[in-house]
C-alpha cells in the first residue's frame, strides 16, 4: 500500500526530527547560565544551605551524568510522562493541555485569518492583465500594506494597539484571557472572544504579508504564461483567469508558506502573549526558560517541533492533491 508506506516514512522522519530537537534543547539547557536550583529557590536562596541544595539535586537527578538524565527523561516520555513542572507545580502534561487550549484559539484564529486574507489580497493584487500597462491602485495599496507590515516588529504593533484600543478608546480589555479573578470555567465565549480580539488582530495583521506577496508574485508570473494567454484568447476576463487558473497555481506557494509559517507564528504568539499578558503556551515558554524549568521547556520544544513537522507534512500532502504531476513521484 503506497499510502501506508508514505505515512510510515513520514512518521519515522518526524520522530527523528523530534529526537534531534529534544537532544538539542537538553544540550542548550545544560549550557544555560541559569542554575535550576537557584531559580527554583528564588528569594529563599539565602536560607538554603549546601546540604539542602544537594538534597534537591539528588531528588531531581542532577547528580547523575547528563546522558543518564536524558535517557531517563526519554524513557519517561515513551511511557507518556513528561515530568513535573516546578514553575507551575503541576504535571507538565496538564500545563501543556491547559495552556495549549488557550494558545490554540489565538494561534488557530490568527493562522486561519492570515492565510485566507493573505491569499485573497494576493490574488486581488496580482491579477493584472499583461495588456494593461500600469499597476492598479488596488495593487499599489495592497503591496504597500504588505511591505509595511512585513517590516513591522510584532511587539511594537501590539503595544501600539494596546495603547490605542485598550487604554485610549477602552474597546478591548488590557490583559489576560478573561476578567481578572474569575475562574476559567466561568468565562463565557463572548468574553473569551473579546479578550482574544486584539491579540488575534495584531498577529493576523503581521503574518498576512508573506502570503500576500508570494501569492501576488505567483499570479503575476502566471498572467504572463501561455496558460493565461490561452485563457485570454478564449475571451476570459481578468477575474476569470485569476480565479480559475490563478487560484489553483497560487495555492501551491500559499500552502507551503501557511504550513511553514506555523513555527514563525508560534514565535509571534510568544511575543504577543507576553505583551497582552495572555496565559498561553508562549508565556509558559518564557517562564520555563527564565526559571530553568527543564521538563516543561523540553515538552514545549517537542510540542512546537511536532506542530511544525505536522504542518510541513500536511503541506506535502496537499501539494500532491493539487498538482497531479507530483502524484506519480515517490515520496
Amino acid at each position: 500500500m503506497p499510502v501506508i508506506r508514505l505515512l510510515s516514512v513520514r512518521l519515522l522522519r518526524i520522530a527523528l526530527v523530534l529526537l534531534c530537537v529534544a537532544g538539542l534543547t537538553f544540550g542548550l539547557m545544560l549550557a544555560s547560565p541559569i542554575d535550576p536550583i537557584d531559580a527554583y529557590l528564588g528569594p529563599q536562596i539565602a536560607q538554603a544551605g549546601a546540604e539542602q541544595r544537594a538534597l534537591i539535586a539528588e531528588r531531581w537527578g542532577f547528580d547523575q551524568p547528563p546522558l543518564l538524565q536524558f535517557g531517563h527523561w526519554l524513557r519517561q516520555l515513551l511511557s507518556g510522562n513528561l515530568g513535573w513542572s516546578h514553575v507551575y507545580n503541576q504535571p507538565v502534561n496538564e500545563v501543556i493541555a491547559q495552556r495549549f487550549q488557550r494558545s490554540l484559539a489565538l494561534l488557530g484564529l490568527a493562522w486561519l485569518l492570515s492565510t485566507l486574507l493573505g491569499f485573497g489580497l494576493g490574488l486581488l493584487a496580482g491579477m493584472r492583465e499583461p495588456a494593461k500597462p500600469t499597476h492598479s491602485t488596488l495593487d499599489r495599496v495592497i503591496s504597500g500594506y504588505a511591505y509595511l507590515t512585513a517590516s513591522t516588529p510584532a511587539f511594537w504593533l501590539a503595544m501600539l494597539g494596546l495603547l490605542l484600543f485598550s487604554v485610549t478608546l477602552g474597546w478591548t480589555p488590557v490583559c489576560c484571557a478573561g476578567p481578572s479573578g474569575s475562574l476559567s470555567d466561568e468565562v463565557s465565549l463572548a468574553t473569551r472572544l473579546h479578550h482574544l480580539a486584539l491579540p488575534v488582530a495584531t498577529l493576523t495583521l503581521l503574518s498576512t504579508a508573506p502570503i500576500t506577496l508570494h501569492t501576488r508574485a505567483r499570479l503575476r508570473s502566471l498572467m504572463h504564461s501561455p496558460v493565461a494567454t490561452q485563457a485570454f484568447a478564449q475571451g476570459a476576463s481578468r477575474r476569470d483567469v485569476a480565479w480559475r487558473h490563478g487560484a489553483r497555481h497560487a495555492c501551491l506557494p500559499a500552502i507551503t508558506l501557511a504550513c511553514a509559517s506555523l513555527g514563525e507564528l508560534f514565535g509571534g504568539v510568544m511575543l504577543i502573549e507576553q505583551v497582552f499578558a495572555y496565559p498561553g503556551l508562549g508565556r509558559a515558554t518564557v517562564e520555563a526558560a527564565l526559571r530553568s524549568d527543564i521538563p516543561l521547556l523540553m515538552a514545549i520544544a517537542l510540542f512546537t517541533a511536532l506542530l511544525v513537522s505536522l504542518g510541513n507534512a500536511t503541506a506535502d500532502g496537499l501539494y500532491r492533491l493539487i498538482d497531479p504531476r507530483l502524484r506519480a513521484q515517490a515520496p
Partner: peptide, 28 residues
C-alpha cells in the same frame, strides 16, 4: 470577439493548464 468569433490554437503545448483535467479546460 475573442473566444467567440476569433479563436487561437496556440503554438505552445504549455497553454494547457497542468492542474486541470482536459475535459474541464475545454468546457471552460
Amino acid at each position: 470577439l475573442r473566444g467567440r468569433d476569433l479563436a487561437l490554437i496556440p503554438q505552445s503545448l504549455n497553454a494547457l493548464d497542468p492542474l486541470v483535467r482536459n475535459q474541464r479546460q475545454v468546457s471552460w
